[in-house]
Amino acid sequence: MADRDETRGLSTAARLRGGRRGLTLRMLGAELGLSTATISLALRDSPLVADATRLRVQALAAEAGYVANRSAASLRTARTNMVGVMVHDVINPYFAEIFRALEAALNERELAIMICNHADDIRRQRTFVDTLMQHRADGLIMCPAIGTDADDVARIVDSGLPFVMICREVADIAVPMVRGDDFAGGRALTRHLVAEGHRRIAFVGGRRATSAGRERHAGYVAALAEAGIEVDPLLDVPETMTQAAVREAATTLLALPSPPTALFGFNDLVASGLMSALRHAGLEPGRDVAVAGYDDTDGAAWSAPALTSVFNAAEEIGSLAASLLSAQIHGEPATPTRILIEPELRIRASTRFVPSA
């Protein structure tokens, strides 16, 4: 009883220092009413923790003499056989094809994948990255969210977590990266539409804050310039990615005084929505208006009409990314390997007509 009375006058830090066992994150969390994860993030200056909370945690840890448990930290060197894979749209069949290739290649190396859909929310992406680090994942393969900057990527690299970027690129930092050549693909598809006789070609979809969105559009612009066709801003409809937005865009385009004769969908999902919208308006894709997509996902060749699309090497991207990551996991240094895969234009019935005017 006397011992208990004596402790009442001690500060929180003093009581923690006087504990019989080593001071732990759990003990700090119990004193501050915070989770162990929050305490850990605060001690590592994570931006996911509010400034006031971070300062409060760090002040108590310093006053109480907290020292990180290096024996526990050394567990980072142990293999968990888990790899994080993060993209912005898990329902897109193109990413499903990448997942399939990744899983097959990583399973051969006795690695399993954890999938995160960050939905282009940078905060969700950062949370997942922190979770992977806390659980000592063996590596990360990521299609970066909009807003990812060089500092975000450098933080991952500096942590020592094996890392490969896919499908999108972040400016001002060089890391292992695998993606299709979006500029070349956008230009090839637009050249085909021009060769088929089209002068009014709309570009629908694509987020210009991403490398894929910018470069496919840049390829479209370059091909039009080669043909002496001026870009009409009314035919350029960026950020249109949901089916509802695609239907609205198609309605607006068809209502123009001089509507497009061809529609370039940023990906096959956008192209599919455009074909549905055309039929709803009483027009037949491939006969009344040409429609093309990108990625050449499973089923594009079997749509009605068969969809012209740019094959974007999902399986090759997945396999190469798995190899680059596996090499890092097994001790090879991460080199800024930048692999651009040449796309392949696959022409089908959806763009096989010559407009009358």
Rank of each mutant, 00 (worst) to 15 (best):
S309R: 07
S326Y: 08
G206L: 03
V67S: 13
N69T: 13
Y66H: 03
T148H: 05
V231H: 00
E230H: 12
I317G: 00
A255L: 15
H330R: 08
R44K: 10
A112W: 03
S319M: 07
A212G: 05
P355M: 12
R17D: 02
V129P: 13
L55G: 01
I339S: 12
G19Y: 02
S319A: 13
D295H: 06
A14E: 09
M27Y: 05
R109I: 06
C167N: 15
G147R: 02
S35P: 02
P305C: 04
D295Y: 04
T240R: 07
R338Y: 03
A262T: 08
I115Y: 00
G286Q: 11
A50M: 02
D89N: 14
L253E: 13
V153T: 14
P355C: 13
V153C: 12
R44D: 05
E284N: 09
N69E: 14
M114N: 04
V194T: 01
M165F: 00
A218S: 12
W302H: 11
I146Y: 07
T261V: 09
A59T: 08
R346F: 12
I156T: 12
D130H: 08
R348D: 07
G84D: 10
H280S: 10
I166V: 15
D172C: 09
V194L: 02
V83N: 04
D5L: 15
L307A: 02
A30N: 10
L111M: 08
S272W: 09
A30D: 07
M86D: 09
A209C: 02
I341D: 02
G33M: 01
L234C: 06
V85F: 15
G273S: 10
F95Q: 14
V194Y: 02
A61F: 01
A62F: 05
R70P: 00
F203I: 13
R247G: 07
E284A: 12
V83Q: 05
P257Q: 14
N81T: 09
A304S: 07
W302N: 11
E108S: 10
S303I: 06
G147E: 06
T240N: 10
R279D: 09
A59I: 01
E332V: 12
L111I: 01
A277M: 11
V310F: 05
T24V: 00
L340T: 06
A225L: 07
P238D: 04
R100F: 03
V270L: 13
L55F: 05
G219C: 11
V310H: 05
C143A: 15
T148N: 06
P47Y: 08
N312Y: 08
L224W: 01
A174D: 07
R200L: 05
V354R: 15
R200Q: 13
A184T: 15
R123G: 08
T351S: 05
A334I: 14
C167Q: 15
R199E: 15
A223G: 13
I115H: 00
L234S: 07
L34S: 11
I156P: 15
A222R: 11
D182N: 14
S74G: 10
S323D: 12
H118N: 09
I347A: 01
R179E: 01
T337Y: 08
D296T: 15
A223I: 05
G205T: 11
T148W: 05
I146G: 07
A42V: 00
I201N: 14
V170D: 02
I146V: 14
A30E: 01
G185S: 09
V129M: 11
L324W: 03
D121A: 03
E103I: 00
R21Y: 08
A290Q: 13
L43K: 00
R352S: 13
T131Q: 13
L278Y: 12
